[in-house]
């Protein structure tokens, strides 16, 4: 039988982008260890709605760790204490009955707060728009296996392609750097022949955009890799730097 848990929450409440926010204390006394952390917030919101308070705003969509919508600082860690999972896949069994858990939004100048725990991550979209893609002619599908790719390259490219764009890397970085997110895309495409055609313009345009959005510098703390739900390796950041040094001075 599922154990019943009482969980104390300290949640960041902020009405609008400009208004000052503050941590507010709540208690959920009918939590179950099988709930996900977002389900706990759902239960809290039912309580708040019943007492005619404003529910806590937070983002989520798939709730199975693949879409990248969710993202919270839980107990001081992006996506919470369990590594390699998004917060929608974090379960209450990671906590103890009676725990007090602080919940804050992902914080960065480039991720302005919309309301409560919801932040605007469209800076990531603009980095991808800058050149996080390959230009191909649409039309009939190319023949399978027309472009040979080694197994190792394909596997590694897939590892980098696993990024879901959640923004935890920025949130956890002591410097607020978006290097892991940007590098994941660059490293993914750099490993594939389709990506090499536009390699130099891609890396320069994406790095320029990352800078323009106001993200911080990378000090190689590797905190990003530790919180990334997909375990994207900081070796991608080394790969981005190689690509930049090569790309900046070739056509």
């Amino acid at each position: 039988m599922a154990k019943n848990m009482t969980i104390n929450l300290r949640i960041w409440r902020q009405k609008s982008p400009e208004s000052p926010g503050k941590l507010v204390d709540y208690t959920v006394s009918n939590a179950s260890e099988h709930m996900s952390f977002l389900e706990l917030l759902d239960v809290l919101n039912e309580q708040l709605i019943a007492s005619e308070d404003d529910p806590v705003e937070f983002d989520s969509d798939c709730r199975e760790g693949i879409c990248g919508s969710c993202g919270l600082m839980v107990a001081g860690i992006a996506h919470g204490p369990q590594q390699r999972t998004a917060v929608c896949q974090l379960h209450m069994r990671s906590f103890k009955d009676g725990d007090t858990i602080t919940v804050e939004p992902f914080r960065a100048r480039a991720f302005p707060i919309v309301r409560d725990l919801v932040v605007d991550r469209s800076a990531f979209d603009r980095i991808i728009t800058a050149h996080g893609y390959v230009s191909v002619k649409t039309g009939s599908a190319p023949d399978a296996n027309a472009i040979p790719i080694s197994k190792d390259a394909a596997e590694e490219a897939m590892d980098f392609a696993a990024c879901i764009g959640c923004g935890a890397c920025v949130a956890a970085c002591p410097n607020g750097s978006a290097s892991l997110f940007t590098a994941a895309k660059i490293a993914h495409l750099a490993l594939l022949p389709q990506g090499q055609v536009e390699a130099s313009r891609r890396v320069v345009a994406m790095v320029d955009q990352m800078e323009a959005e106001g993200f911080g510098d990378c000090s190689n703390y590797a905190e990003c890799e530790a919180v990334c739900p997909k375990g994207i390796s900081v070796s991608g950041i080394a790969s981005m730097r190689r690509a930049y040094m090569k790309g900046a001075f070739s056509k």
Binding site: L23, G76, V227
Partner: peptide, 18 residues
């Protein structure tokens, strides 16, 4: 890059090198 800091923050541990 982060004008408003966290009230609660800690490292997630290895593979972090922070």
């Amino acid at each position: 890059a982060r004008p408003v800091g966290y009230k609660a923050y800690k490292s997630a541990g290895s593979p972090s090198r922070s």
